[in-house]
């Protein structure tokens, strides 16, 4: 049994690492955006904090979101829609192993993006902070994969196999922009600033910024609670989608 979990995770990681549309884009886009908007804009600052420091937090959040939403959203939708999940369900695979493996991929690629971003920030952006703070931010960013995994699974449980990647883009990119992950939320129009608290991306970004001692809106605990809430709601939606699939099977 345990061996099946280990093999499922290892194989899923190999599969996704070789899938260039996943591995290249989830790693390259956040790094590229960070170069454009943070490193190239070096002299600008937001609330007395350099862009390279501020956007390290928000592009870290952006990167983790992408790695997770694509692995779960597009991954599950394609395998569910084109029959592969059914082959696995007919086999003695422990049913949870499938989802655990997607989680392992999300965490691994999330950790990879965050680590590379930190290296860029430290080497080219002149970002300096105590080791404890680096570690805390790294941990908080990577842990963000958990609530977004639930959101991705909800998408993957309902989206069609051919449209899933588009659906993920249509949710991921606007959510990142409106949540203040591409540029500081204070620069965005007031209307978007009012919308932001309804987006999980906003709360994720605010938690990472708080670790940088950037003045944030509301309390960190409040943002954590919001993310937990979003995670639970979408886990529920995903559960409904998955049981709808099973009912189609057993019903």
């Amino acid at each position: 049994m345990n061996r099946a979990y280990w093999m499922e995770s290892k194989t899923e990681l190999l599969k996704m690492a070789r899938l260039k549309q996943y591995s290249i884009s989830t790693v390259a886009f956040p790094l590229m955006f960070y170069c454009f908007f943070a490193l190239a804009m070096g002299p600008y600052s937001q609330g007395g904090i350099s862009m390279s420091r501020y956007l390290l937090a928000t592009y870290g959040a952006f990167g983790v979101m992408g790695a997770t939403l694509y692995a779960f959203g597009a991954g599950v939708a394609v395998e569910r829609g084109l029959g592969w999940l059914e082959v696995k369900r007919a086999s003695p695979m422990p049913p949870a192993a499938y989802f655990v493996a997607k989680g392992v991929v999300s965490l691994t690629f999330g950790a990879l993006v965050v680590t590379l971003l930190f290296a860029l920030g430290a080497i080219f952006g002149g970002v300096r902070m105590p080791a404890g703070q680096w570690l805390l931010m790294w941990g908080a960013l990577v842990a963000g994969a958990i609530p977004f995994g639930a959101i991705g699974l909800a998408i993957g449980s309902f989206a069609g196999p051919n449209s899933a990647a588009g659906v993920v883009n249509m949710i991921y990119l606007p959510m990142a922009f409106c949540g203040g992950l591409w540029m500081p939320i204070e620069i965005l129009p007031k209307a978007l600033q009012h919308l932001a608290p309804w987006l999980p991306s906003y709360h994720f970004g605010q938690i990472a910024l708080a670790i940088l001692h950037v003045p944030v809106h509301g309390s960190v605990l409040g943002h954590v609670e919001a993310l937990v809430g979003f995670g639970l709601i979408f886990a529920g939606v995903a559960w409904i989608g998955q049981s709808r699939d099973r009912e189609k099977a057993y019903g």
């Binding site: 499922e8 194989t11 190999l14 082959v87």
Partner: peptide, 20 residues
């Protein structure tokens, strides 16, 4: 089946299913 994961080697597919 409509599509089987294409970025896995034959042996990797077999090793995974064998582990079940």
């Amino acid at each position: 089946v409509g599509r089987v994961p294409e970025t896995l080697k034959v042996r990797e597919h077999i090793e995974l299913f064998s582990s079940y």
